[in-house]
Design a protein around this nucleic acid. Structure first.
Length: 490
RNA sequence: CGGGGUGUAGCGUAGCCCGGUCAUCGCGUCUGCUUUGGGAGCAGAAGGUCGCAAGUUCGAAUCUUGCCACCCCGACCA
């Protein structure tokens, strides 16, 4: 009989891997570094997509689709972009296989070598800007606000399911603007959408900030990000929004004629969140019993488990519970009545806890006699008896309460695990303990590198709301005027 | 690409040192009956090129060599 998970305190990463499998979210594929997202896991991703997509549409963006393959030469047009991605690109060199003459299956046909090799997109800036060159001539063509939902490939050396896979799913927004100000505004507008989504839908509090030069996107002038804190005290970059300046416009020669008649380079942004969010969701809330899902992203909100002996009792329960199911469904709540006779209630309880179903209702003959049902919350594992009368509204309200309470719990966790330090000794000790460490820094990449080398911690971001404060750099003692957020990161 | 480790049924494993009824056990699966308020019990059944290849031997899961795959630790990353 399948029993519990490894606990988080025992072995956090084993707990995570096991949970992903046992909750039916995903599994590793036969291709190294790639994952098979299973139906239950994918339906969570679909809910994420839907919510984000709606927000993008509300802010004037449209979806489009660009090809998986990018001519190799495109990548090299923007210097720092190539440098950032060249080391992790899958390359298409041939377009045909043939039967091996020695009968060993199929082999690459050497006759079918491509004139120009193609790369599998690690991101689409180059494909998109080479297109924008054709689409943009005048200020009237601007802005262009596009998004695409796609898969990308980055040939990672070490992979973790959802957190870092060689192929992952994401959305990438690519916008083009006439002015610098407008592009910068777009960058922060998107960051706000990401933060709102993370907090209100995923129940994961995030810090909005900007990246240091070291952590910036290859080809960006400025990278904004949302950073979340996982239960093991490590930080996770959950989304990024880049101000590209005119870098890609210059690389791809994208100019427009302004109202005044001058010819100017276009300003750009790009932004994305990926299936990594699934990892954030899992690690932010789940416990040793399994997954804990915020109701807004749960594929099943409520599961009803009948407890019965024989067909007759089952039908009796079904009859009495049906109005409740109907009421909940009418309120847009996804309910599953689990009348599978092959597994027993105890097994079902454990199984739905593993899968993170927010609310479980169980009903047996004892309850029917008293006109009540048992309602159990996944997030805090409490259960209570409630009269069947009025249970529908109670559950509807409960789901909101759970959504809220999951967020508050994560917020509280982050507050307890965010610490200000002022000396190097405090710093190293606190980094060792985990969590966000807020400290002064002299602003140089060399110092950041040195700190990383010594402690494995990186600057997750310079928080947007960082207040002016005189201090001295944690490593060098040089003056600094604001604190930045350090952590060990995924 | 460096350093370490592991490959035996769908999954997890014993056996390997010391070659010979050793292919073990648990879970899962299938059939039947009894069960059903926190991961059911009994009885029966199916399921394996012991990672691949070559070698040593009368005989190889076990010894030798080569190859492959995966995992962990490092360098790189959303």
């Amino acid at each position: 009989m399948a029993k519990g998970l490894p606990t988080r305190s025992e072995n956090y990463s084993e707990w995570y891997n096991e949970l992903v499998k046992r909750a039916d979210l995903a599994e590793n594929s036969d291709v190294r570094g790639c994952m098979i997202i299973k139906p239950y896991g994918f339906s969570i991703w679909e809910k994420m997509q839907r919510a984000l997509d709606d927000m993008f549409k509300e802010t004037g963006h449209s979806n489009a689709y660009f090809p998986l393959f990018i001519p190799k030469s495109y990548l090299s047009k923007e210097a720092s972009h190539v440098e950032g991605f060249a080391k992790e690109c899958a390359v298409i060199t041939h377009y045909r296989l043939k039967n091996d003459e020695n009968g060993n299956g199929v082999v690459v046909d050497p006759e079918a070598k491509l004139e120009e090799e193609l790369i599998v997109r690690p991101t689409s800036e180059t494909a998109i800007w080479s297109t924008y060159k054709r689409w943009i001539q005048s200020y009237r063509d601007l802005p262009i606000l596009l998004n695409q939902w796609a898969n990308v490939v980055r040939w990672e050396m070490r992979t973790r399911i959802f957190l870092r896979t060689s192929e992952f799913l994401w959305q990438e927004g690519h916008t083009a603007h006439a002015t610098k100000e407008e592009a910068i505004e777009e960058t922060s507008k998107i960051l706000d959408i990401y933060a709102k989504f993370s907090e209100e839908w995923m129940g994961v509090p995030v810090v909005k900030g900007s990246k240091t030069a070291n952590e910036r996107f290859a080809g960006a002038e400025d990278t904004l990000c949302i950073e979340a804190l996982m239960q093991d005290g490590k930080a996770l970059q959950a989304g990024t929004s880049h101000f590209l300046g005119q870098n890609f416009a210059k690389a791809f020669d994208v100019k427009f004629q302004s109202k005044e008649g001058t010819l100017e380079y276009v300003w750009g942004t790009s932004w994305g969140v990926s299936t990594r969010l699934m990892g954030a969701l899992i690690m932010a809330h789940s416990d040793d019993q399994g997954l804990v899902l915020p109701p807004k992203l749960a594929p099943i909100h409520v599961v009803v488990v009948p407890i019965y002996k024989g067909e007759e009792q089952l039908e009796q329960i079904r009859g009495i519970i049906t109005p409740l199911l109907t009421e909940l469904k009418a309120a847009g709540i996804t309910v599953k009545f689990d009348d599978d006779d092959n597994s027993r209630p105890g097994w079902k309880f454990a199984e739905y806890e593993m899968k993170g179903v927010p609310v479980r209702v169980s009903v047996g003959m004892r309850d029917l006699e008293k006109g009540q049902i048992e309602i159990a919350r996944r997030d805090n594992l409490t259960k209570e008896q409630k009269p069947l009368e009025g249970a529908g509204q109670y559950i509807i309200d409960l789901l909101d309460k759970i959504q809220d309470s999951i967020y508050k719990k994560a917020l509280d966790f982050r507050a307890r695990n965010t610490n200000e330090v002022n000396t190097w000794d405090e710093f190293t000790a606190q980094i060792e303990k985990g969590g966000f460490v807020s400290a002064h820094w002299n602003g140089s990449s060399e110092t950041e590198d040195k700190i990383k080398e010594l402690t494995k911690a990186t600057i997750r971001c310079i928080p947007l709301d960082a207040k002016e404060e005189k201090g001295s750099c944690i490593l060098t003692g040089e003056p600094s005027n604001k604190r930045v957020l350090f952590a060990k990161a995924y």
